[in-house]
Nucleic acid binder design. Sequence first.
RNA 1: GGACCCUUAGCCAAGUGGUAAGGCACGGGACUGCAACUCCCUCAUCGCCGGUUCAAAUCCGACAGGGUCCUCCA
Length: 444
Amino acid sequence: MKIYNSYTDSLEEFQSIHPEKVNMYVCGPTVYNYIHIGNARPVVFFDTVRRYFEYKGYTVQFVSNFTDVDDKIIQKAMEDKIPELELSSFFIRAFMQDVEDLNCITDYKKPKVTDYMAPIIEYIDHLIQTGFAYQVDGDVYFRVSKIKDYGVLANRDVDEMIAGSRIEVNDQKENPLDFTLWKKTEDGIKFDAPFSLGRPGWHTECVVMIDDIFGEEIDIHGGGMGLKFPHHENEIAQAEATHHHHVARYWMHNGLLNFKDTKMSKSLGNVIFVKDVNEKMPLRYYLLSTHYRSPLVFTDDVFSMYVKEWEKLESAYRSVFYKLDLADTLNEDIQITDSAVLAEIQNFEEAMDNDFNTANAITALQSVLKIANVNLRKTNNDDLMNQIIVALELMTNVLGLRIDVSRISQEDRAVYQKWLQARTDKDYDLADQYRKELMEKGIL
RNA sequence: GGACCCUUAGCCAAGUGGUAAGGCACGGGACUGCAACUCCCUCAUCGCCGGUUCAAAUCCGACAGGGUCCUCCA
């Protein structure tokens, strides 16, 4: 399979460091608010990446952090007059609820900055000892000039960045590009370190967590395009300083989500929270409808289109399922042998193998729906119908699209028989009554 | 000031040198007791201009429009 590596800006054949195993880390949220649908994009996408690797037979160790120490958290906590940890734990729970509602796998490791304070301090201290960092009046900065590859990930020329800077230079730094490892603070939660009473910078946590949990370079590091610079660049700089590798073999960055014509961001205030979107599966479907590296535009009209497509998927799947269930011929242990269905599974895998092209994978899914609908009214094709169910399940599992169906109860079966009988009797008033009941349950 | 990205039918979206996948909407049929669902058919020469090539949506250049980033902002 091929993955687009942001570090080299090219499509590369994926080769895991350890056979049959994928170690991946995705930058998680700073927990001071609910997440919006733009924040949900990497969450859903990298969950899908994980699912596909598992489908391919890999064991995936998936890690995603929570940044629970940060200026924004401190500020919000002060506004709300509650302790920082109370605020962050509230939004961690809210995040997990959203993640679960989006049908993401939730049993992954979720380290928090507050759990890693000692190793982070130790790590910063080590950088100072080795000359990669320096202290100025209680603050600690990373010495970027020591890293010769700095700027490779973000594809930036260091000299140009300095020349083009329009931001006021912090004259405490040796070099304007140096970034904060530790910040001496007056307000809010503070931690005791040899440098000062303060809090860590944002860029160190991921490196320390990855080192602690994986103990070596990992296969994949993911996150939003917006994190590429400076966050990921700085992670790499630190890893080069201490571990002499680039954190990950493959860096993956998803495109941002725009709301109408600008990006959706908390600071612009044009956000739609995940928790406020009722149609969670259509949301997931929408987020996967475009290749992950392309920008995605959200408007109500576009979203309603995906709500509709989702309903088509759901209704076709249910129709096939209930057809088999009513005939008592449901059999999900069947082998797929139908050439058309097999071809679509192959298309699906080829799409996913090609840098997780979920847009094309969805096309394969839709083709299976077509096969289902075309054959739904035919008889004596239970075998094919069962193969379709298996194929749909395979695809929707990889994409994380959950369709709720359950076996039809005895009572509903009776209603179904009565409906058929009433139609045979041409008693349409009665038939319509039964039909309404069955439709409300989604059986028809 | 600098770097990078995007522009495919009414809408969403694949496609990276060989004469435009798929979905939604529209229109025309079919099925149905009526309806819903579903099915069949129809629906674009790829922002604009110029260049390279036997051949370009796909490569190069200019222009227009949109977007992101440029030192503690996720």
